[in-house]
Design a protein around this nucleic acid. Structure first.
Length: 247
DNA sequence: ACCTGTTTATCCATAC
DNA sequence: GTATGGATAAACAGGT
C-alpha cells in the first residue's frame, strides 16, 4: 500500500482518532487552548479528508470533547468575547497514547469523582467570574461570584497587593504538573510522516520534549494571570471586595 | 438560524 | 469471550 502523502494523507482518512486530532490542534496553538471553530480549522487545513462530510465528523469531535475527561472546557476571557469556550488538554492526560497507537489509547483518561468535582467547581467559578466581570462592564451591579476556597481565585490574588505583580494562583487541577513521564507529544503528533508514528505496527511515540508540560502550565497560568490583570484594570482588587473605608 | 455543547445509544474494532 | 475504546447518529438545550 502506498505511503500516504506527507502532510495530509490526501483523501485518505488519517490514522488518528478524533482525540488525537483534537490534541494536535490544541497543542499546535500558542496558548495550548483553542475554540471549537479553530480545532475544526486545524483539522480541515491539515487533512483534506475532513473537508467532506463535515457534519458527521464534527459531531463526533464535539462528542469526544464533551465525553472525555482529557479535554477541559475553559471559559472565554471576558476581554475576548466570541462564540463558544476554549478547549484545552488536562495536564494529567499526556500519557494517554503511551502505547504508541494514535488510534486507540492504552486506557481512557478518566478523572476521579473528586478531581472532576474540583475541576468543575473551578471552571464554574471562572465562568461566574467572567459573568461578573461583564456585568460590571455593562454598568450593572455584579452578582457575587462564587469562588471556592482554595480554588483559582482564592486570595491573595490582587496583583497590586502581591509582591509579584503576576503572582499565580495556588496549584490546582488545572495547574499541577503531571507526575509521570509523558509520551504523548505534540511534536511527535505533528510529524505525520515520522516513522515512529506509523500506526502499524505500533511504535512508541517517544520524542523527549522536556519543557512540554511547562509550556502547558505556563500557558494556563498566563491565561489566568491575564484574566486577573484585566479584572484589576477595571477595578483594582476586584477580588476579594475591598473593605469599606472606616469613617 | 446556526453554532456549541451534552447526553444517550448503537455498532464495530481492539485489547486483555 | 469479555471489556473497553472509538466512530457515528441523534435528540436536545442553550447561547449568539
Amino acid at each position: 500500500m502506498p505511503r500516504p502523502s506527507r502532510e495530509s494523507y490526501g483523501d485518505q482518512k488519517p490514522p488518528y482518532s478524533y482525540i488525537s486530532l483534537t490534541a494536535m490542534a490544541i497543542w499546535s496553538s500558542p496558548e495550548r487552548m483553542l475554540p471549537l471553530s479553530e480545532i475544526y480549522r486545524f483539522i480541515t487545513d491539515r487533512f483534506p479528508y475532513y473537508r467532506r462530510n463535515t457534519q458527521r465528523w464534527q459531531n463526533s469531535l464535539r462528542h469526544n470533547l464533551s465525553f472525555n475527561d482529557c479535554f477541559v472546557k475553559v471559559p472565554r476571557r471576558p476581554d475576548r468575547p466570541g462564540k463558544g469556550a476554549y478547549w484545552t488538554l488536562h495536564p494529567q492526560a499526556f500519557d494517554m497514547f503511551e502505547n504508541g497507537s494514535l488510534l486507540r489509547r492504552r486506557k481512557r483518561f478518566k478523572l476521579q469523582k473528586g478531581e472532576k468535582d474540583n475541576l468543575n467547581a473551578e471552571l464554574a467559578a471562572l465562568a461566574s467570574f467572567n459573568r461578573a466581570f461583564l456585568a460590571r462592564q455593562a454598568g450593572a451591579p455584579p452578582p457575587p461570584p462564587s469562588m471556592p476556597s482554595g480554588g483559582l481565585y482564592s486570595p491573595p490574588l490582587c496583583p497590586q497587593l502581591s509582591p509579584e505583580p503576576a503572582e499565580l494562583p495556588e496549584p490546582t487541577a488545572m495547574t499541577l504538573l503531571p507526575q509521570r513521564k509523558r509520551a504523548f507529544t505534540i511534536e511527535a503528533l505533528l510529524e505525520p510522516d515520522s516513522p515512529r508514528l506509523s500506526p502499524s505496527p505500533p511504535a512508541p511515540v517517544l520524542m523527549p520534549v522536556p519543557r512540554l508540560e511547562l509550556s502547558y502550565v505556563a500557558a494556563a497560568q498566563r491565561y489566568h494571570a491575564e484574566l486577573l490583570a484585566a479584572a484589576h484594570a477595571l477595578r483594582p482588587c476586584y477580588l476579594p471586595p475591598p473593605p469599606l473605608p472606616v469613617a
